[in-house]
Amino acid sequence: KLLSSIEQACDICRLKKLKCSKEKPKCAKCLKNNWECRYSPKTKRSPLTRAHLTEVESRLERLE
């Protein structure tokens, strides 16, 4: 599967780190437990900047 097509777990399953069936409108866990089942939009991760990478590398060197 391509990364862009990976389905996201519902908010509660993601928060509780449960295996989500990803069914809509309610996944199996939410249906069974009568929880409100919501699927928040995916958040875009910002790409690493060179400055951040350099900072992490220098912190790693100090720890070694």
Rank of each mutant, 00 (worst) to 15 (best):
K1R: 11
K1T: 15
K1E: 03
K1W: 03
K1M: 14
L2W: 12
L2M: 14
L2G: 13
L2H: 14
L3W: 10
L3D: 15
L3S: 08
L3T: 08
L3Q: 07
S4Y: 12
S4M: 14
S4K: 05
S4D: 11
S4E: 14
S4C: 11
S4P: 10
S4L: 15
S5L: 13
S5V: 08
S5N: 08
S5K: 07
S5F: 11
S5D: 14
I6H: 10
I6Y: 11
I6K: 08
I6L: 13
I6G: 09
E7M: 08
E7W: 11
E7T: 09
E7A: 08
E7F: 11
E7S: 09
E7V: 09
A9C: 02
A9H: 06
A9E: 00
A9S: 05
A9P: 03
C10I: 02
C10N: 06
C10D: 01
C10M: 04
C10A: 05
C10G: 00
D11T: 03
D11F: 01
I12L: 09
I12Y: 13
I12H: 13
I12A: 10
I12E: 12
C13I: 06
C13G: 01
C13W: 05
C13T: 01
C13K: 02
C13F: 00
R14M: 03
R14K: 10
R14T: 04
L15M: 12
L15G: 14
L15E: 12
L15C: 11
L15D: 12
L15N: 11
K16E: 02
K16S: 00
K16G: 02
K16T: 00
K16R: 08
K16L: 02
K16C: 06
K17H: 08
K17A: 04
K17W: 06
K17N: 06
L18T: 04
L18D: 00
K19P: 06
K19T: 07
K19G: 15
K19D: 03
C20H: 02
C20A: 03
C20G: 04
C20Y: 06
S21Q: 02
S21C: 01
S21R: 02
S21K: 00
S21I: 03
S21H: 02
K22T: 02
K22F: 05
K22H: 09
K22S: 03
E23G: 12
E23Q: 14
E23P: 04
E23D: 13
E23N: 14
K24G: 13
K24Q: 14
K24W: 15
K24M: 13
K24Y: 15
K24V: 15
K24R: 12
P25F: 04
P25M: 05
P25D: 08
P25A: 06
P25Q: 06
P25G: 09
P25H: 02
P25I: 07
K26D: 12
K26R: 14
K26V: 10
K26E: 11
K26F: 15
K26I: 15
K26N: 15
C27I: 02
C27P: 05
C27Y: 02
C27D: 05
C27S: 08
A28D: 14
A28C: 12
A28V: 12
A28G: 09
A28T: 12
A28N: 12
A28Y: 11
A28W: 15
A28M: 11
K29W: 00
K29P: 03
K29H: 04
K29N: 07
K29C: 07
C30M: 05
C30Y: 05
C30E: 04
C30N: 06
L31S: 13
K32Q: 12
K32L: 10
K32F: 10
K32C: 09
N33W: 05
N33H: 12
N33E: 10
N33F: 11
N33L: 13
N33S: 14
N33C: 13
N34P: 01
N34W: 07
N34I: 14
N34S: 11
W35H: 13
W35I: 15
W35Q: 14
W35F: 13
E36G: 13
E36P: 13
E36C: 15
E36M: 12
E36Y: 08
C37T: 02
C37G: 07
C37R: 04
C37P: 01
C37E: 01
R38P: 05
R38L: 15
R38S: 14
R38G: 13
R38D: 13
Y39H: 06
Y39G: 03
S40N: 05
S40G: 09
S40I: 06
S40K: 04
S40W: 03
S40Y: 06
S40T: 09
S40A: 10
P41C: 06
P41H: 07
K42I: 10
K42T: 10
K42S: 09
T43D: 10
T43L: 13
T43M: 11
K44M: 13
R45V: 00
R45K: 08
R45E: 06
S46M: 05
S46T: 09
S46W: 01
S46K: 02
S46Q: 01
P47A: 08
P47L: 00
P47N: 01
P47Q: 05
L48Y: 07
L48A: 02
L48E: 00
L48C: 05
L48K: 06
L48V: 00
T49I: 05
T49L: 04
T49F: 04
T49P: 00
T49N: 00
R50C: 00
R50M: 05
R50E: 05
R50Q: 05
R50Y: 05
A51I: 12
A51Y: 09
A51M: 12
A51N: 14
H52A: 02
L53M: 14
L53F: 03
L53E: 08
L53C: 07
T54I: 07
T54W: 05
T54G: 07
T54E: 12
T54P: 05
T54S: 12
E55I: 09
E55M: 14
E55K: 10
E55F: 10
E55R: 10
E55D: 14
V56W: 01
V56A: 00
V56M: 08
V56S: 01
V56K: 01
V56P: 02
E57G: 02
E57Y: 05
E57M: 00
E57Q: 06
S58W: 13
S58C: 15
S58T: 09
S58H: 15
S58K: 09
R59G: 05
R59M: 07
R59T: 06
R59D: 02
R59I: 03
R59E: 03
L60T: 06
L60A: 13
L60Y: 13
L60D: 03
L60I: 11
L60V: 15
L60C: 13
E61D: 13
E61S: 11
R62N: 08
R62L: 12
R62Y: 07
R62H: 10
L63K: 01
L63V: 07
E64C: 10
E64Q: 14
E64F: 04
E64M: 13
E64K: 10
E64L: 09
